[in-house]
């Protein structure tokens, strides 16, 4: 497989064509909302990502819904679409953990991660090839940066967790 094919895995091309979670949704009553706007300064691409947190179990808040709007290259768009599938409906902790592991993947220089981490990432493992291209890592991380920031603005992450 050429490095180009390694980068543009079918999973990525498929997601880039049919984007999951795109289109900002009005928050439901009773949900805590967090939102973040992130820009890739290289190209001007941007994303606005909104999370709705269900805190009915205060010990285990859940990302009840995740929606987004934005424009960008196939890598950034597919990455946000995959992020949506990984995080929406899951606990905040699980979303945070996925973000951490995805950032690790992006610094792996194409080597990928251990089996447990890749199991956790699922489709997002397809972005391994992107980590070979420093200029494109920012594209893949755009949505994940917005997720982190929106969890912070929602107030669901304490300062300790952010550290």
């Amino acid at each position: 497989m050429s490095s180009l094919e390694q980068m543009y895995q079918q999973v990525i091309l498929d997601h880039a064509k049919v984007l999951h979670g795109k289109g900002l949704v009005e928050p439901a009553d009773g949900h805590v909302v967090g939102e973040s706007h992130q820009v890739n300064t290289t190209c001007g691409d941007d994303v606005t990502l909104r999370v709705e947190i269900d805190e009915s179990d205060p010990e285990n808040p859940v990302v009840a819904r995740l929606s987004w709007e934005g424009q960008g290259c196939s890598i950034s768009q597919a990455s946000i679409s995959v992020l949506h599938d990984l995080v929406a409906g899951e606990s905040v902790d699980a979303g945070e953990r996925a973000g951490e592991v995805f950032r690790e993947l992006m610094s792996s220089r194409g080597k990928g991660l251990d089996d447990d981490s890749e199991d956790l990432l699922g489709d997002a493992t397809a972005f391994t090839g992107v980590s070979l291209y420093p200029a494109r890592i920012k594209c893949a991380l755009l949505g994940w940066a917005a997720l982190r920031d929106s969890l912070v603005t929602s107030g669901v992450l304490t300062n300790k967790e952010q550290a």
Partner: peptide, 12 residues
């Protein structure tokens, strides 16, 4: 096709 993706194919 986004410009970044165009650039990537050309770069290859």
């Amino acid at each position: 096709v986004h410009a970044h993706d165009v650039g990537q194919i050309l770069d290859d």
